[in-house]
């Protein structure tokens, strides 16, 4: 990863199960303008297996992924 992208909003989805985490991310993205960036925090395991796939399939772009201690931080650009 190169320099960090600035996020317009942030959503901590740690502890939120599938598919509620995706629905919450989707609702948050709906509130943003196209091109704006949402920072997401997702647990390892099922959430990180599923949510990025669904985000991509909805037409958004994942700009950055950071693996942290037991969870992931993602920067998603609204498509």
């Amino acid at each position: 990863m190169t320099e960090e992208t600035k996020a317009n909003a942030s959503l901590d989805l740690r502890g939120v199960v599938c598919p509620i985490n995706f629905v919450k991310a989707k609702l948050k993205l709906d509130m943003l303008e196209t091109g704006e960036v949402l920072e997401l925090m997702l647990d390892s395991g099922e959430p990180i297996q599923n949510v990025p796939k669904s985000i991509k399939e909805e037409g958004h772009k994942i700009l950055e992924v950071k693996k942290l201690d037991g969870y992931f931080s993602l920067k998603v650009q609204k498509g």
């Binding site: 990180i48 990025p52 992931f72």
Partner: peptide
Amino acid sequence: CTGCTICSEACKEDAIEAHPVSG
């Protein structure tokens, strides 16, 4: 590849391991 490691998490078959340094 940016070494983000998502593929290794997404693979349910353990067919992809992330390199400990480069990811």
